[in-house]
């Protein structure tokens, strides 16, 4: 087919490849905010998606409710057995909370890494190309959402805010393959073990917790929570449970495989977490660690 590569066509093709590479180069770098045409497009589609999403979510919710009804009896039985336990726990927690407040008063320490303001949001879209695990929520800058905030469901952490526009924001999920997606976490047992959530095992669908010292023992089933030491996330958001532990490829540190406690699919209502204690960003001395959340 000689006319496929006519001269004019060839030139158009080459020019468009150059533009393509330039565009990719422009957009792939870590950007603080999007250019205004992008923001405009995202806000407009976000608005339409918000409308489009309501009836769809209604139908999906109805199907889910019917499904739930089928399991109600068994669930009820199981929950009843745990009710007594719950009452005991509740009184304990109340006592501890009261004591905590009193002790804080004595120490005159008002702020804690744990405190945060919630912003309720609804998922309106998800990236269909599943290379970049991202979802779009219907809350943006004017609702107080900022870059790098943690996003949780009632069960645990699901990701962080990647970028915001006026009325929508993009959430980068934990399962996304991004080397810059690092979260400082800890396992709080007898001694505290710190590490980073870095990466996701596509095949087994487990998170990788890396940089754990080689000499600590981690029990299977230990709870992994955010440590709050990265400077942006609050402390104590549940991330998941340890499934297995291996030493890394050089044998210097250990890698724990963590099963996320929150469902990363079929998301509907999420909470954007705004930490109350001031972030380290104002004292931007720790440049190299800026990415660790």
């Amino acid at each position: 087919m000689p006319q496929f590569f006519l001269n004019k066509r060839l030139i158009v093709l080459l020019v468009s490849i150059i533009i393509l590479v330039a565009l990719i180069g422009f957009s792939v770098r870590e950007r603080e905010k999007l250019s205004w045409p992008e923001q405009f497009l995202k806000d407009t589609t976000g608005f339409v998606q918000n409308i489009f999403h309501q009836p769809v979510q209604f139908v999906a919710g109805f199907v889910e409710n019917v499904n739930d009804l089928q399991h109600t009896y068994q669930e009820n039985k199981r929950l009843k057995t745990r009710l007594d336990e719950y009452v005991k726990l509740k009184t304990e927690v109340q006592e501890l909370e009261k004591e905590n407040v009193e002790l804080r008063d004595i120490l005159d320490k008002k702020e804690s890494l744990r405190d945060f303001d919630p912003i309720q949001a609804t998922i309106i879209a998800r990236n269909p190309d599943m290379w970049h695990e991202k979802t779009i929520i219907n809350r943006g800058k004017i609702h107080g959402v900022q870059k790098d905030m943690a996003v949780i469901t009632s069960k645990g952490l699901i990701g962080k805010i990647k970028i915001t526009t006026q009325f929508t924001s993009t959430v980068q999920l934990l399962s996304s393959m991004d080397p810059k997606n690092r979260i400082s976490v800890g396992i709080y047992g007898k001694g505290t073990i710190y590490g980073f959530i870095e990466g996701f095992d596509q095949k087994e669908r487990l998170l990788l917790m890396k940089k754990i010292p080689y000499d600590v023992k981690i029990k299977k089933g230990s709870e992994v929570v955010t440590s709050g030491l990265g400077g942006v996330f609050p402390r104590g958001l549940p991330v998941g449970k340890v499934e297995k532990v291996e030493s890394d490829q050089y044998g210097l540190t250990q890698v724990a495989y963590v099963k996320p406690s929150a469902e990363l699919y079929d998301l509907n209502h999420v909470i954007v977490v705004k930490r109350k204690i001031s972030t380290t960003e104002s004292s931007s001395g720790a440049g190299a660690e800026g990415d660790d959340l």
């Binding site: 468009s16 490849i17 533009i19 393509l20 590479v21 565009l23 990719i24 422009f26 957009s27 792939v28 999007l34 045409p37 992008e38 497009l41 995202k42 589609t45 976000g46 879209a125 990236n127 269909p128 190309d129 290379w131 970049h132 991202k134 779009i136 990647k162 970028i163 993009t170």
Partner: peptide, 15 residues
């Protein structure tokens, strides 16, 4: 539009 709204890497799907 797909690139802008979903992937945020411009040009791949457009091209």
């Amino acid at each position: 539009l797909f690139d802008v709204v979903y992937t945020e890497i411009l040009g791949v799907y457009a091209f």
